[in-house]
Simulated scan of single mutants.
Amino acid sequence: LDAVLGTSVAGTWARVQLRPLEQAGPTAALETVRTWLRADARLPAAAAALGISLPGARKRLTRAEDVLGRSLLTAPSAKYELWLAMRALGSL
């Protein structure tokens, strides 16, 4: 997996996947999604790591879903693509 994710093609793909979150601005979408993925997509653990309430974390992820135009909290989910993208860029 590391060999595949280490290719320039994977890096380009990863940047495209994460660009909407990076461009979202002050909503902290990228850091919220990164923290949530580091917590194995467990919302309570992500909220604790972010130092915010569970509803607050859920609201942030809902905003990230809006930015991405894809679901994170319900199936089918974009979480695996985002995990792979962050892993390819070394940010997970």
Rank of each mutant, 00 (worst) to 15 (best):
D2L: 13
D2F: 06
D2H: 04
D2G: 09
A3S: 10
G6R: 11
S8N: 06
S8W: 14
V9I: 05
V9M: 12
G11S: 05
R15M: 07
R15A: 15
V16D: 02
Q17L: 04
P20V: 01
L21N: 03
L21W: 00
G25K: 09
G25S: 07
P26R: 03
P26K: 05
T27A: 00
T32P: 02
V33P: 13
V33M: 04
R34I: 11
T35K: 00
W36K: 00
W36Q: 05
A39R: 07
D40V: 03
A41M: 07
A41F: 10
P44S: 00
A45L: 14
A46V: 09
A47H: 06
A48L: 01
A48E: 10
A49N: 07
L50R: 10
G51C: 02
I52R: 15
S53W: 04
L54I: 08
L54P: 01
R58K: 12
T62C: 09
T62E: 15
D66Q: 07
D66C: 02
V67A: 12
L68M: 09
L68A: 14
L68R: 11
R70W: 14
R70N: 08
S71W: 08
S71M: 13
L72I: 14
L72F: 11
L73W: 01
L73C: 00
L73Q: 06
A75D: 12
S77Y: 02
S77D: 13
E81K: 10
E81Y: 03
E81F: 14
L82T: 08
W83F: 13
L84R: 15
L84T: 14
L84K: 15
A85C: 06
A85E: 14
A85D: 15
M86F: 01
R87F: 07
R87N: 11
L89S: 05
G90M: 10
L92R: 07
L92C: 04
